[in-house]
């Protein structure tokens, strides 16, 4: 177990380093000089050459790129993403305030995806090629095809404006997360249900199911236990990939529902061309994703007995 864990960490480390290089690179290619931008923030100051140079040296932006990268990494590891160019606030403090909102949203959307995706997939596999199966398949395709913001507007119209059940925006406890997480999970439910269906069907047609039913086990027992457990093995890895989509998609959904998460922060930052925040966002979402992948790898290890015996898959 520990051996496997370390192996995964070592294989994910280069990925994480790559993500940091990508995030650093974003800062380099951004047009506009961050030094000049931060000095002219008030709209009145017209900085002199000397002021610009002094600020540049202060921020360490006059050093060669690879040294800048090492300096940057050193700060970033300690959570220091610098200050917002726009309002001079510490990015770290703001991100820490906002991260729980994003994680809560992404996690609840992920749970909805897993439950609904597996559920719909199992129903489709059990009623294979009937009208219900065909209907659900069409529904899944439709769910993948509706833009999140359209769905958000429809839900707001129904639940907020018509029935006054849920808040349209902002933070009012658990209620505020219901619509955003539904909208966020909608697309991935469609794809994951389809995937679960084909995995369940693939599993049903295997021989051990026939053997189990020949031995007189009830159909529902075979269905709920043997098939489910085995079909889960490939499905888990795909759910891991979907988590990336959910995490990224939360930026758009947070903005629509005005949730104060990392995503709405970065989108506001884009309007202000606040590059350090964009950099921090890419790095943080990338890191969260790498960590969640590690978690899923471990789950995979626990659920798949073949891994424990050291079989290479």
């Amino acid at each position: 177990m520990i051996h496997y864990f370390l192996k995964r960490v070592i294989s994910l480390l280069p990925v994480w380093i790559g993500i940091t290089i990508f995030a650093f690179f974003l800062g380099l290619v951004s047009p506009g000089d961050p030094v000049y931008l931060s000095l002219t923030r008030d709209g009145i100051t017209e900085p002199s050459e000397a002021m610009v140079n002094a600020k540049r040296a202060e921020l360490g932006l006059d050093l060669p790129y690879h040294i800048q990268y090492v300096n940057w990494i050193n700060r970033v590891i300690r959570g220091d993403f610098g200050k917002s160019i726009y309002d001079n606030e510490e990015i770290k403090a703001e991100m820490l305030r906002r991260m729980p909102v994003t994680l809560k949203l992404a996690f609840s959307a992920f749970v909805i995806t897993v439950v609904a995706g597996l559920g719909i997939g199992a129903v489709m596999a059990a009623t294979r090629d009937t009208i219900l199966d065909r209907f659900l398949r069409q529904l899944c395709t439709l769910m993948v095809s509706i833009p999140g913001f359209c769905m958000a507007i429809i839900l707001i119209a129904i639940f907020s404006e018509c029935f006054h059940l849920l808040p349209t925006s902002g933070m009012e406890g658990v209620k505020s997360f219901i619509m955003p997480s539904l909208v966020l999970s909608m697309g991935t439910i469609g794809t994951s249900a389809r995937l679960s269906r084909s995995n369940f069907i693939g599993e049903i047609s295997k021989q051990y199911v026939l053997v189990a039913s020949a031995k007189g086990m009830s159909k529902s027992f075979i269905g709920t236990w043997h098939i489910f457990k085995n079909a889960m093995i490939p499905i888990i890895t795909f759910f891991g990939l979907y988590f990336a989509g959910i995490l990224g998609g939360s930026a758009v959904i947070e903005s629509i529902f005005a949730l104060p998460g990392m995503g709405s922060y970065v989108i506001d930052a884009i309007y202000n061309r606040d590059y350090f925040i964009i950099q921090a966002f890419v790095l943080l979402t990338g890191t969260i994703y790498v960590l969640s992948n590690l978690l899923i790898d471990m789950l995979y290890f626990l659920i798949n007995p073949r891994m424990k015996q050291g079989d290479s898959l």
């Binding site: 990336a244 964009i278 992948n293």
Partner: peptide, 17 residues
């Protein structure tokens, strides 16, 4: 590396930069 960064993050980053 590119699989490790959520797609929308990449799009948001480029639109921003």
């Amino acid at each position: 590396v590119f699989l490790g960064i959520p797609g929308v993050s990449i799009m948001v980053a480029f639109a921003g930069v």
